[in-house]
């Protein structure tokens, strides 16, 4: 078991003929992911490393029976691409693209509301279920099949945590990047609920950062609904207020969204919060009593 994606997941890559799209589609396929189709309008009939390209997601669905979309479409056209995937009946949309206007995401989120489709991202590294499917841009080789579920707002910081878990021999089940944008699809709570139900996942690592109140909402949820041990790190305790720290969503505004506040809420919910990101792996080990 695992969450969201596995060896049966059939992926269509939107924006597959672009530089990023073709590189990562190839990497995902090499990891063992079933990348069965690509979409670039006007390029139907071409192939990328043996993956057939279609003009529309609808065509790709018809010919290749995909259930998941991985999006590399440039920001100005990305809202359109997400909505196209949803309309074609894709059930899981993983959007890597960074830099989508917030108001575009406002409209997308509203349009997806109440529909049987899940969006992960945008501005995220994607989702990987170790040794089954890598649907994103994370380096596959740092992962090791194991027992820890990882959910994070960041990319390379997630790799850091995964590297520690793998080195310590704990390994991971599934790692989900929910992205660094202020308006996104799947949140911490959704992923925590999935990990809680997944029999293979024995502990959860949650990596948050300054800005918004997603971590506080997660803390409330953990207190009530999560029995598995949760270890958390919140980036940005040294970040000054009012400045965007790279990610569009990483900003302390009006005194809200500080790392200290988030750490406090999580600790109150029984989460083991580490102040040093180098200690994430060790903290999981302790939490599991190993």
């Amino acid at each position: 078991m695992s969450i969201l994606v596995n060896k049966n997941t059939r992926v269509v890559v939107q924006g597959i003929t672009g530089k990023e799209g073709s590189f990562h589609a190839t990497q995902c396929k090499a990891y063992g992911t079933q990348v069965v189709a690509g979409v670039t309008p006007g390029k139907a009939g071409q192939e990328v490393e043996g993956i057939p390209v279609f003009n529309t997601v609808r065509d790709a669905m018809k010919k290749a029976q995909c259930d998941t979309s991985l999006i590399f479409v440039p920001p100005p056209f990305c809202a359109d691409a997400i909505l196209e995937a949803a309309d074609a009946g894709v059930k899981l949309i993983i959007c890597i693209t960074e830099g989508i206007p917030v108001n575009d995401m406002v409209k997308v989120k509203r349009a997806l509301y109440g529909r049987d489709v899940r969006l992960v991202g945008p501005n995220c590294p994607g989702v990987i279920t170790v040794d089954e499917a890598k649907i994103g841009i994370m380096p596959g080789f740092i992962h090791k099949k194991g027992i820890v579920g990882v959910v994070s707002r960041s990319g390379t910081l997630t790799y850091e945590a995964v590297h520690q878990l793998s080195t310590l021999g704990l390994g991971e089940t599934t790692c989900v990047g929910i992205g660094g944008d202020p308006v996104n699809g799947t949140g911490f709570v959704d992923v925590l609920a999935l990990f809680e139900k997944d029999p293979e996942t024995q502990a959860i690592v949650m990596i948050g950062e300054i800005g918004g109140d997603a971590e506080e909402k997660a803390a409330e949820f953990i207190k009530k609904q999560v029995k598995k041990p949760v270890v958390s790190f919140i980036a940005g305790i040294t970040a000054p207020p009012g400045r965007r720290m790279g990610h569009a969503g990483a900003i302390i505004s009006g005194g809200k969204g500080t790392a200290t506040e988030k750490m406090k809420s999580l600790e109150a919910a029984g989460v083991r919060v580490v102040k040093n990101p180098a200690e994430i792996g060790d903290a999981v080990k302790i939490a599991l009593g190993r």
Binding site: S154, T156, E209, I210, A235, G236, I237, M245, G246, H247
Partner: peptide, 10 residues
């Protein structure tokens, strides 16, 4: 990476 950059500052 932005998250790792913040973590490095921390």
């Amino acid at each position: 990476g932005a998250g790792l950059a913040m973590a490095t500052m921390d």
